[in-house]
Amino acid sequence: MKILVVDDEPDVRTLFEQRFRREIRSGEFSFSFAYSGEEALTFLTGHHSEVVLILSDINMPGMSGLELLRHVKHDLIPPPPPLVMMITAYGDTDSYNQAMELGANDFLTKPVDFTALKDKLHAISTA
């Protein structure tokens, strides 16, 4: 299962690669990384229909995670759109409602509980 992680913090890559090293080694998950919303969109247009799941931060300079979500859910052709999980440091209801309205599949708050995330990802990949 191909997962695209979008976050403006470069160290997120190291973290994910270590957290999911067994899954990566076994080939269950494969991660790609983008450091901004714009970069993520470019990546998606080049690899459409490959990416099953997007994990995106909301607060990023430039295009925000919510805008990315809107593009992914409404503009990306061809369907079906990938699943999108939003991750944010601000777990406020405004952001949550907005994300849900735009069609987010899940809403996680930082600090990320990787055990829970792992379970969710396993559930998606085996579904």
């Binding site: 160290d11 973290l15 270590q18 957290r19 440091a89 601000y90 930082k110 600090p111």
Partner: peptide
Amino acid sequence: AHEIQNPLNFVNNFADVSAEL
């Protein structure tokens, strides 16, 4: 708060993952 939260998350996460390692 946001700027401190981010590095603290990394510290916690890297510490956790190191324990796993």
